[in-house]
Write a protein that binds this DNA or RNA. Structure first.
Lengths: 206, 206, 206, 206
DNA sequence: CATGAATGAGCGTTCATTCAT
DNA sequence: TATGAATGAACGCTCATTCAT
């Protein structure tokens, strides 16, 4: 990098967005490991990889930018979905359908997200305001609240949150082998499954 | 063209085993991406990477050998665990406790397994006789059988199998961040969770 | 072809001075090799390196400007110091104390000077009116005069000038490892040393 | 590097020596900064820079190897020269003529030595058993001994050692601009100069 | 007078693999 | 069965400089 490239100008921001988009596409298609500056530049139609180095301090910053963009979009989507629901059970349902729905609508972005999370090269957590732990945190909060309100049975909220989250984290991978997978049906199955797995039953001790 | 390296002689097999073991350790510690021939040779105490190239046709074959070894061991362990149980519910319980137990006992091997599955470079399915699909297949078979016998409720066996499998696939990753995680408790939570999620209830229609 | 950047306007001259100052600081801290346009711009608070390229034809011209500034200041200081002394012996003493004194007062500038002299990339002599040879020339002139006046013994003035000059050239380097070095004491030692080394003794043949 | 290239075999050692020699020549001609792996490979007639990376862990190790070779040779030469002399005055004389003589006989090597010392990139001191400080140390020891024996006058041994050492360190640089310089005469001048500068005189207080 | 954007060349390093015994 | 030597390609990154306003 030379000094500090502007991300604050219009054309600069446009270039950055273009490079981030090309990065997402490349990761989605080839995976993180095969995603080099050369391949990104190729896809973005840039004359040289130098342009990427010019706009981003390094590979870590580029990946952090991808992360930030996708997580921001995802976060807004999830907030909107979950906030509507009234009780914990409803919010859990909304969380599941919201996340599966986002994955269905943005396969490439979610695939890129997962790939980056699985490759902890630099210190990505320093960039994104919201990350995997946060995701687990949100879910755990919903589960705890449901337990406190007597909607959910007694279970370890961390374990349950992990199970639920992983069942959806794996989707981008699953979609690779089964692109035709019916995600709406998948979401319905998950909702039923985790409703049964979590809900309190008559006679349960709070 | 070189002479085909025999895996059929004693010293040859020993060397292969040594290299496979070093590969597992390296992947478990550094992850798939940082696992190069150089680092494996280093750990195995070999004077050059040439010995690896000599015994394995390439990186893909080496990884396939790792896969074969771990999956074979895991397969025997699981077969032993699951076959004991009488009904489907018991076999599901045995599957979960068996797999979590194996993961607890062989963290490095399971971590390597997961890393290799997550990095589909070559065509691994051509090597290993048993792979991830098989794992899902076994689980799916248990679930189907339980449904047929009226033990389990109606659900999509593929989706349920995926959810259950992923909840344990993620363990090696989880153990990286939380090495002190109580795996027995984790297994108990999973057993309860998926028992509730799968079992038929009075009044259910078969 | 671009318009020639004027050093003749007020703001232009100010910018040039600012850049030269930042260059000196950068060289003093990081050394010549690590001193790139990017790092200079960073230190000077410039938004891009373009401003440097704009005001200076290239790296060589920038370094020549640094050289010119420091050598000019040093030259005036030395002229003032040396001219006061009456005989050659006194002028030699003044030269030594003057140069060591200047080094003590302007460590960064002298460090930059030395770094640039040690990295003869372009043809620096074409820029600066006064350079290392001139320095040696001044010293040599003092020594020759002292010999002619019978104050100094017979020796090769060039060699002696080199020895004396190098004993002080090395100071910026020495100060890196020993920042607490007592430069006044150092100067006194040099004065005594070279007084003994140069002066004529009774019975010497002129 | 891959694992560990052999420096212990005959051909390996020969290659290493060849590369070290090419490195010395390149530094001597172009200076440290212009000395890249590409230029060294070019001069050594290697097919690619990869061969250098194969035999040396990195640039630092290569430079350390150059340093080790030259310092070893120089050290043996100096030890031989200085040990012959009886008193401190003689040893000082031997030190000067020995070092200047070595520089005259091995201009390229000494130029390379100086260039590397002036570019403290990695931690070179960890490699060479003997370095610049040692050189100063040897000289200082001679001076101190001479003072204790009453051969030398009172002066700061560190300062005097620095002055003497620098007067010879500068030779490779001086030879660049004046290749025809008479080094024997130069040595004689130095011997006289520092003899006068250091020796005790009748009436001096020990 | 100023500057954001862009660029081609070069850097040291690492990769899996092949050559030649 | 084993191994030291060698290799071309690719990697992320930095360089001084030029383009176009």
């Amino acid at each position: 990098m030379q000094v500090k490239p502007g991300g604050h100008t219009f054309t600069g921001a446009a270039r950055r967005a273009q490079i981030v988009a090309a990065t997402i596409d490349t990761i989605a298609e080839l995976g993180y490991n095969q995603t080099s500056f050369a391949r990104i530049a190729e896809r973005a139609g840039l004359s040289s990889t130098r342009l990427i180095s010019y706009h981003f301090a390094g590979k870590d910053e580029l990946m952090a930018a991808v992360l930030a963009e996708v997580l921001d979009q995802l976060g807004r989507h999830m907030a909107e979905q979950v906030s509507r629901a009234g009780d914990a059970r409803g919010r859990l349902r909304a969380y599941i359908t919201g996340l599966v729905g986002f994955t269905a609508a943005h396969r490439d972005r979610m695939r890129a997200l997962m790939e980056i999370f699985l490759h902890p090269q630099g210190d990505l957590s320093s960039y994104g305001p919201e990350d995997d732990r946060d995701a687990l945190g949100h879910l755990e909060a919903i589960l705890r609240e449901g337990q406190e309100r007597g909607e959910f049975r007694a279970f370890d909220p961390f374990v349950m949150a992990s199970v639920i989250q992983r069942s959806m984290d794996a989707l981008p991978l699953l979609l690779r082998t089964r692109p035709e997978l019916d995600l709406e049906a998948y979401a319905r199955e998950l909702v039923t499954t985790f409703d049964l797995a979590t809900r309190a039953r008559p006679g349960d001790v709070a």
